[in-house]
Nucleic acid binder design. Structure first.
Lengths: 134, 134
DNA sequence: CTTTATGCAAAGGGTTTGCATAGTG
DNA sequence: CACTATGCAAACCCTTTGCATAAAG
């Protein structure tokens, strides 16, 4: 299963890499920090180092298996690359992360870049929200 | 001049605060890091500490005089708060930062948050672009 | 004068790196 | 068996904090 993805990415199939990929797979769309992953695994009794988690995540990112998000607050959040682009909404009260995607906004972004003589390489749109009090 | 803004913000008018505010004023729309500011001032011979630059920037941000941006890459970038909201386009080749604003996108964002039962507290939209090769 | 702000150096949090050892193909 | 990956600890980068001194009102 996952081992296939690893090989395709040109990465040796090692214990830490399998564990991390499998964890991300199981928690698909959960947006974890390196430390979240490190804890989830060590709590379960796995013998893995935090440095390895960072190294593996960087390799996964380079290989396009994983997407790294820099929300506010220092830590980076990682999620499996689903292939389908989407943006994020972060609840400032609960910390919950919701994904969304809006064709219209995507289109407008390209249009704006073009108007300035550029083309979009990548973009980041994050809405910091709070539950609507009704 | 600037001293007025400082008083209004409830901040004592001190040398470091005047220097930093004045520098940001002169480089309006230039997006500087704390270190950029620290260097610009010390290079000019001013006696100021990096810690003070950080402290002052935090106070300015709290007072709404300055906006802090967390682009990719660890450092935070600061700019004077012009009062008018805008988003950013960062050229990945030159590092140039261009500001833009699109009513339609703003509207869609609020609409999306609302659809999920939230209201927008803040948002961040950054386009990472490269010059269009024609 | 009293109080707040400053500079310096040390501490912090997240992430990276050096190195000897362990694991993969 | 050769080579890459791992764990640990130390190093790093940016930012914050503690403390004695200096500046502001």
């Amino acid at each position: 299963m996952e081992t296939g993805n690893l090989r395709k990415a040109g990465l040796k199939v090692t214990q830490p890499r399998r564990l991390i990929l499998e964890l991300l797979e199981r928690r698909r769309f959960k947006h974890m920090t390196a430390d979240d992953i490190y804890r989830a695994l060590t709590d379960r009794g796995e013998d893995i180092g935090l440095a390895t988690v960072y190294r593996v995540l960087n390799q996964f990112e380079a290989a396009g298996l994983v997407v790294k998000h820099n929300f506010e607050g220092g830590q980076a959040y990682y999620e499996l690359d689903s292939g389908e682009h989407h943006d994020h909404m972060v609840c400032v009260q609960t910390g919950k992360v919701i994904e969304f995607m809006n064709e219209e906004i995507e289109k407008l972004q390209h249009q704006i870049a073009e108007e300035h003589g550029y083309e979009i390489e990548d973009h980041s749109l994050v809405l910091y929200v709070r539950p609507k009090e009704n």
